[in-house]
Amino acid sequence: MATATVIEIIRQFLHKPFTNTFPVKYAPKNMHKALEAIQAGKVEITPPVPVPDDLRGKLAYEKDTCIGCQLCIKVCPSKAIEFKPEERKIKIFIARCTFCAMCTEICPTNSLAMTTEFLLGTAEKYGKDMIVE
C-alpha cells in the first residue's frame, strides 16, 4: 500500500542519520569503566548540538565589582539570590534559579552574566557547584 507515509519512510533511508549521538553512540556496559576510558582519551565524546553564544545557562558572578545594591534580589522571580549583609555581597543558588536573566539586566555594574554551561546534573542540590558566590 503506497501511502504518503510509506513513500516518506523510504525517502528517510536516503538521508543521513538525524540523531546527534551525545555523548556516545551506544550505552557502555559499565559506566565507571567508560568514564575511565574517556579520561584516558580512548573514547571520544560527541559534543552536544551547538548552542548559541547567548544561551541562558549557569549564572556567573563577578564578586569584586558587586556593590551590594540588592536590585537583583528585587527582580528575581524565584528567590534564588540571598544577600550577605556582613560582606554586602550576594549568594546565588543555581538550584532555585529560573534562568530568566533579569538580574543580569538590572545589575548596574554588570557583575552578573549568563554562561553557556548547561550540563548541570548533580546529586547535591545545595552542593559546591550549585552555589555561586
Binding site: V51, I94, F118, L120
Partner: peptide, 11 residues
C-alpha cells in the same frame, strides 16, 4: 537533580 528551567535534552 537536573537543574534548568527546563534543562536541555542533553542535560
Amino acid at each position: 537533580y537536573v537543574p534548568g528551567c527546563p534543562p536541555r535534552p542533553e542535560a
